[in-house]
Amino acid sequence: MFLDSLAMIALAYIFGFLYYGLYRNISARVHGRFGPSLAQSFFDSIKLFLKENSTNFGWMFYAGPIIMMIGAITTLLFIPYLNGSEHLVGLSQYGNLILVLYLMVLEPLGNAMGIGSNGNPFGVMGITRGLTRLIGLELPFYIAAIGLMIANHSADIGVIMTNQSEGYNAFTHPLLFIGAFISFLGFMGKSPFDVVGAPQEVYSGPATEFSGKFFAIALSQSAIFSFAKLLLMVNLFLGGAQSLVELVAKTFVLFLVAVLVGNVYARFTTAQSVEFLVRVPTGIALVGLLFV
């Protein structure tokens, strides 16, 4: 089980950074540039790990990125990778969808604690924006999750995944999928829901004081965490995957859509994004929920 979990984390780390590299590349192509190499994000994180020193604001600041990393890793370990496989399941038999939804909030919490303790007002501004956005962001996703849990009469991710052999939830519950997908775009932190770290407005937002190894851990956890989110979407709506190749294909498609949407849209303000999320995707998902 330990090796299994380690393999999950390592795969998520590699794919997360690879996808982030792809994101930079695709954005570059959209802008008409060549873009950096695929491994550039990986190089960045290694370089940050190798900085001679990192600014520390005290023990809570030190613990903040660690809590973020715990949030990312625990979320990942409670989501099975493959459909019907004995490998790469992590601890998923000990958890369920509700637990995963709550573990997903641990990462913002660690972020908030670490950043709050450094006393930089820009960081806290970013955090408040993030938590305010979370009000709107979680609503459609929760509705979709509730719909799926009621439809399958189980909160077990494995059960929801295997019950899709006749048709993906994305097609049997299309409205739930649309609602959850818009909210997923926000969870990925791309435009138009990227108010949290908007560099033109709040410096670097939450990351303002993170440097060296702390920033490296924050980057690594965000790579792992975004892969976990992709995985969750694939498991809930696209029927999971039988093999790693299928998994990569499905997650990549989701990721590509998120990146392309992010490149096209301008940024919402905090209030706009909450209002949009509470009206449009929530409305769509609620209609979907009534069908369930």
């Binding site: 930079r24 570059a28 802008h31 008409g32 540039r33 060549f34 873009g35 950096p36 190499s37 550039q40 190089f43 960045d44 370089k47 940050l48 600014t55 560099p199 410096y203 670097s204 990351a207 303002t208 004081e209 993170f210 440097s211 920033f215």
Partner: peptide
Amino acid sequence: FTSRYDIERLGVVGVATPRQAD
């Protein structure tokens, strides 16, 4: 940083805060 010169090819990225800058 624009598409004409595209320095991101070389791994050079702009950041907003001195804490992360090299």
